[in-house]
Amino acid sequence: MRVRWGSFIPHLILSAFSLAILLPLVWIVRVSLTDKLTAYKIPPEIGHVGIENYIEIFSAYPFERWFLNSLFVALASTAISLPLATAMAYAFARFNTGGIFLRLGVLASQMLPPIILVLPLFTLFFTTGLMQTHLGLILAHLTISLPFLAWMLVSFFEGDSASLEEAARIDGATRWQAFILIAVPVAAPGILAAGLLGFILSWNEFLFALVLSGADTQTLPVGLASMETHAGVEIAPLAAATVLSLLPVFVLLPFLRKYLIKGLSLGALK
């Protein structure tokens, strides 16, 4: 009986936390499928169920453009930052490049509030003609994702892979070959986990996109914030747009879940 209660109570607590996390998502899905009048009613009612709100966000708002802008910027920033962060992390782990001061500098840059970087980036992009462009947004997102990914990946290159690289060097491999053929495959779960987190970080970024983007380059977070009419914010279409904005994460997570868990646990063990 004690064993049963000992396993039941933790499961009960975890179930309660899971319900607390899932409740907002369930609420948003419910609101997105109801009509605009029913969406405001308290206590909540099911009312009419349909996809009119999903149709409206494509007909009344440039949702497709917001979505494609976010997807392009997130993929591009992740594709650029991940190889650079991998090389930085490898240099930190193998050669202690820059010493502890450079590592602390990378960590300190991650601690800076993004609003501190907005004004210098605005001035720089305005001078160079990168304002309201996709390239400008990608470069701005690199200032957030690159330090985070580099610091995260350092632990994946410390440990057993060093001895494997030394064995490869003894067999005649160059440093570059040891890095590409040994270090990167061993750290692949961590690199994939970092790539997933970097994509989500860029996908959800709001402040830089708000200040540095234009009408043609607005991303989803900025677009969702601008969904306001003369009558105020219409919750039902906004809920439908929110549900669609979550789709990339839900599509990627099942495929990369095992790599995310394995990568994070690998870094913790090392």
Results as ranks from 00 to 15, higher is better:
231 A>G: 11
205 E>V: 01
217 T>C: 07
208 F>K: 03
266 L>K: 15
255 F>D: 03
241 A>R: 03
243 V>T: 12
243 V>Q: 06
240 A>Y: 05
256 L>P: 04
246 L>C: 09
246 L>G: 13
243 V>F: 13
244 L>R: 03
226 S>F: 14
255 F>R: 14
247 L>R: 03
220 L>N: 02
227 M>F: 09
240 A>E: 00
235 I>G: 00
234 E>G: 05
238 L>Y: 08
254 P>M: 01
219 T>D: 01
208 F>Y: 10
223 G>D: 00
225 A>C: 06
260 L>C: 12
207 L>I: 13
258 K>E: 14
231 A>N: 11
237 P>V: 11
256 L>G: 09
210 L>T: 13
229 T>M: 06
267 G>S: 01
238 L>W: 06
256 L>W: 02
232 G>C: 08
206 F>H: 04
234 E>H: 06
241 A>M: 07
237 P>T: 09
262 K>G: 13
204 N>G: 12
248 P>E: 07
240 A>H: 02
217 T>I: 08
241 A>L: 07
209 A>T: 08
252 L>Y: 03
213 S>K: 10
247 L>I: 15
246 L>P: 01
255 F>N: 04
244 L>V: 07
210 L>E: 10
225 A>P: 08
207 L>E: 04
218 Q>C: 05
248 P>N: 04
235 I>W: 06
239 A>Q: 02
220 L>K: 01
237 P>L: 08
205 E>Q: 04
255 F>E: 10
236 A>M: 12
238 L>S: 13
206 F>S: 01
217 T>W: 10
261 I>Q: 03
227 M>C: 11
222 V>S: 00
229 T>C: 05
236 A>Y: 04
240 A>T: 04
227 M>L: 13
252 L>H: 01
236 A>H: 11
215 A>V: 15
245 S>F: 14
231 A>E: 15
236 A>R: 07
209 A>P: 07
258 K>G: 09
252 L>K: 03
232 G>M: 08
255 F>S: 09
267 G>C: 02
213 S>R: 09
224 L>K: 07
215 A>P: 08
211 V>E: 11
205 E>W: 04
256 L>C: 10
238 L>I: 13
234 E>K: 12
220 L>Y: 02
242 T>C: 07
254 P>F: 00
249 V>A: 15
262 K>L: 05
256 L>K: 05
224 L>R: 04
222 V>W: 00
247 L>H: 03
226 S>R: 14
207 L>S: 11
232 G>T: 08
243 V>E: 13
259 Y>L: 10
245 S>W: 09
229 T>E: 12
249 V>I: 14
240 A>Q: 02
224 L>P: 04
242 T>I: 05
242 T>W: 00
228 E>D: 11
228 E>N: 13
219 T>A: 05
208 F>D: 02
229 T>W: 03
213 S>I: 09
259 Y>K: 13
267 G>W: 00
211 V>R: 06
214 G>E: 01
223 G>Y: 00
265 S>I: 15
221 P>S: 02
